[in-house]
């Protein structure tokens, strides 16, 4: 059997904007049929990385392939096989839904255009809106239209840059259902997001901060690699508790979740030792917890910042 070619494979990819390194030596591998989540704070280089993948930006260093084509020399071939959905709605507000889709289909020279158009409209449930101007659609429907537009030419890889930003939970769920059904057909997707629940829906995730890849792998791998112990305290006055805990040995992070305070550290014994005096206080109910992606990412970020300071 032939070795399976990864959908994306990049090595040491870098991009510098006027002296500032936006993407630093990024190496990444995305397999066929995978949903790959891309996380990280704003300005961490997610968008830049995606733009490099679809040839909008030229990498300053590094190499890689996308769908088996070289990133530097075979941009044209890559472009016709990927679907890129930019962060901001980037279709024409003053064209109707159908006109927008028709335009994109022509741009990609989609064969049997009418048929494909009708099928896409049907599948994405855009039927009731075909005559409406895209600018008048609501956020969720705009996003659906944008997704429909980048599916017309049956791409093998979707690059979706924060597709669900500013979209209501219902529409988000629908959107993910679409993504699942697409990946079931063998399409791969690289999705950047700020939502943790979406990160957990991905097959694998990568966490980027200030251009550096901090961690990557399946959610379980990322969590176990971080080796974080988490205690949660429930009760009133957790802000006060947080201020008491700050700076104690073994306590790396305290993250409030409503009436909950998550206390994290990498050394479980030291963490427990520092917390023991507080266990006695009846105000709080203590519970040991599995760490989630969110705690891991926050801790990675704060460790990163400490390293930069030191």
């Amino acid at each position: 059997m032939r070795e399976v070619v990864p959908v994306i494979e990049v090595e040491g990819l870098s991009k510098v904007f006027s002296g500032k390194t936006v993407v630093n030596q990024l190496s990444l591998r995305v397999e066929k049929g995978e949903i790959y989540g891309f996380l990280g704070p704003n300005g961490s280089g997610k968008t830049t990385f995606m733009r490099m993948l679809c040839g909008l930006l030229q990498p300053d260093a590094g190499s890689g392939t996308c769908l088996g084509h070289d990133l530097l020399s075979e941009v044209e071939q890559i472009r016709s096989r990927i679907g890129y959905m930019a962060q901001h709605f980037s279709l024409y507000d003053d064209l109707s839904v159908r006109e927008n889709l028709d335009f994109m289909a022509r741009i990609y020279a989609v064969p049997k255009r009418r048929q494909v158009l009708a099928e896409t409209i049907e599948r994405m449930g855009l039927g009731p809106f075909v005559g409406q101007l895209a600018g008048t659609l609501s956020g969720g429907w705009k996003q659906r239209l944008a997704l429909a537009a980048c599916l017309l030419h049956e791409p093998e890889l979707l690059l979706l840059d924060e597709p669900t930003a500013g979209v209501d939970p219902m529409a988000r769920r629908d959107f993910w259902e679409q993504i699942y059904s697409l990946t079931a057909q063998g399409i791969s997707a690289l999705i950047s997001t700020h939502y943790m629940d979406e990160a957990e829906r991905c097959n694998r995730v990568a966490y980027l901060a200030y251009g550096n890849l901090l961690t990557s792998g399946t959610a379980e791998e990322v969590i176990s690699a971080a080796g974080l112990s988490v205690w949660s305290a429930t009760g009133l006055g957790i802000q006060e508790l947080a201020s008491h805990l700050k700076g104690l040995p073994g306590i790396e992070l305290t993250i409030p979740f409503g009436n909950n305070l998550h206390v994290c550290g990498t050394d479980p014994e030291q963490l427990e030792q520092s917390l023991r005096p507080f266990f006695a206080a009846s105000r709080y109910r203590w519970e040991k917890q599995e760490s989630g992606l969110e705690e891991v990412f926050i801790s990675l970020m704060s460790r990163r910042l400490e390293n930069d300071d030191g």
Binding site: L56, F89, Y92, I107
Partner: peptide
Amino acid sequence: RGTMENLLSTPV
């Protein structure tokens, strides 16, 4: 309007 980004990512 940002539509250029979309156009540029196509094979045009």
